[in-house]
Amino acid sequence: MLGWFGIAENAAAGEADRLLARLAADLSAAGLRVAGAVQRDTERGGNCACDMDLIVLGEEDRPIRISQSLGSGSTGCRLDAGAFEMAVARIDARLAGAELLILPKFGRQEAQGRGYCPLIAQAISIGIPVLLHVSAKRRAAFTAFCGDMGEHLAADRLSEWCLEQTAGAL
């Protein structure tokens, strides 16, 4: 009940985020109770890194900026850990009654055992399927986290997998 997908390394920036956003909208429109979040990055141009916002599903009018502007040329981590943890808490508050949990990715925070890890574990423990993106860079950490529980999915099969996992929910 833990599905993950990757995309081609040469895919356009943000492609996995756009794919998950469309999927979450389509599944919700079909009547599935979907919890989680999708990420939206906004390019700032020039030498500036993008702004990163998390959109908690069901609270689309209240995006959470999870990036900090450190200035051009900076190389440090731009994640605003406090804002990210607030987003995780808001997702957790919407988990009750959900039939599916969609999360943007298994990233650096998750590779260190933080971030979405508690949500993933909680959802699986109560029988809620989880879907997320895992980049090639994070696959070893993801496997260390979930062992053989994760099911690799082709990007064009995500909707089908979600509907199979939630059969009878609609």
Rank of each mutant, 00 (worst) to 15 (best):
Q112W: 07
L57E: 02
E151K: 15
W161E: 03
T75N: 08
G3L: 05
R40Y: 04
R139Q: 14
H133M: 05
D92S: 14
A81N: 11
G147F: 13
Q39V: 05
L2W: 04
C77K: 12
G31C: 06
C50K: 09
G113E: 08
E160G: 03
L132G: 05
A49W: 12
C162M: 02
A93D: 08
I91L: 10
M86G: 08
H152L: 12
I128M: 11
A16S: 15
Q122N: 11
R139K: 08
L132W: 05
A11M: 06
F84M: 10
D53S: 06
S125C: 10
G107F: 02
G45K: 06
R114E: 03
D17A: 15
A83W: 07
A111Y: 01
P129D: 10
N47Y: 07
A87I: 00
R40T: 09
G115M: 02
L103W: 07
N47D: 13
L70W: 11
L103I: 12
P129A: 12
I126Y: 08
D41G: 06
A87F: 01
E59I: 02
C146R: 13
G113N: 15
F145T: 03
F142H: 06
V88L: 04
F142E: 00
M149K: 15
G58C: 04
G147A: 14
P104W: 00
I66W: 02
C117H: 00
L20Q: 05
A144I: 02
I7M: 15
T42E: 03
L32R: 12
D26N: 11
C50G: 12
G97M: 11
I66N: 03
A141P: 07
E60N: 07
R90D: 14
L32K: 11
C48H: 05
A49M: 15
R139A: 09
A49F: 12
A12M: 08
V134D: 00
A169L: 12
L54K: 01
A89H: 10
G3S: 10
C48T: 07
D26M: 02
T75A: 15
Q68F: 04
A49H: 09
S159V: 00
G82N: 13
L54G: 00
G45S: 08
D41E: 14
F84Q: 11
G150H: 07
L100Y: 02
E59P: 02
L131T: 05
A30M: 04
